[in-house]
């Protein structure tokens, strides 16, 4: 009677499996990061459109310069922060790698290094905020020019810092689970991988903030 029905398709899209070859948890993190990218994208685009029409934008390389050995070295702290965040991204990648290979203690060690990197970054940021605030930078004005400079500084770095902070907390929770052997029992370190995606995304955003806010 019902002879014309199609044979069951065997494509990856045919249902009963993940078309992307990843489980829902990881896909969800990807999609979340996509939407978060739009929040940051929104901020950065607004920043860009304000920046191009504001004539008296302070020179960031002067503002963020550090006095060291009697010389003024531009953007030194920011360069160091970038170094720290990229390093922590590297250790995170190695932690995920260790997870793939099921090496529980190595995974935990690299995770702790990553957290350390994150905390160092936050420390630097706290120092930077304090320094700028003592120099008179406020959300509504600063000694050097366009008032939006301070506003965008606090908004962009603050929002990013908030992501780093949540990342540190998130990674701590994951580390605890690694140490307790939750993933080892489950036979998959996917949880670490998902956390890794988040952490790399935070690094990714910093690449753009570093480029467009500090270097431009």
């Amino acid at each position: 009677m019902q002879t014309q029905t199609q044979p069951m398709q065997e494509s990856v899209w045919a249902g009963g499996r993940s078309p992307f070859g990843i489980r829902w948890g990881k896909l969800m993190m990807w999609v979340f990061l996509l939407s978060d990218a739009f929040t940051f994208g929104g901020f950065l685009v607004i920043y860009g459109s304000v920046r191009v029409i504001t004539p008296d934008w302070p020179d960031p390389s002067r503002v963020f310069a550090l006095h060291l050995f009697g010389k003024e070295i531009p953007l030194l702290l920011i360069a160091f922060m970038t170094f720290v965040l990229i390093s922590s991204s590297g250790t995170m990648a190695l932690a995920v790698h260790a997870g793939y290979e099921g090496d529980r203690s190595r995974c935990a060690r690299f995770l702790m290094l990553t957290i350390l990197g994150g905390l160092t970054f936050l420390g630097c940021q706290a120092y930077e905020w304090t320094k700028l605030i003592t120099e008179g930078v406020r959300p509504w004005g600063n000694p050097w020019g366009a008032p939006q400079f301070g506003a965008f500084f606090f908004t962009l770095t603050g929002f990013h810092g908030l992501h780093v902070l949540s990342g540190v907390i998130y990674l701590s929770a994951i580390t605890r689970r690694v140490l307790k052997g939750v993933y080892a029992r489950r036979g998959s370190y996917e949880g670490v991988e998902i956390a890794g995606l988040y952490w790399h995304f935070v690094d990714l955003v910093w690449v753009f903030i570093f480029t467009f806010f500090y270097l431009f």
Binding site: S35, F40, G42, I46, V50, P139, P147, A151, T155
Partner: peptide, 25 residues
Amino acid sequence: GLVTFPVLLAGAILLLLDRHLGTSF
């Protein structure tokens, strides 16, 4: 929603800052 709501979130945060922190976005 996933690609547009976050942009409004960014906008709303800036509006809150304009209202309460004296910024001028």
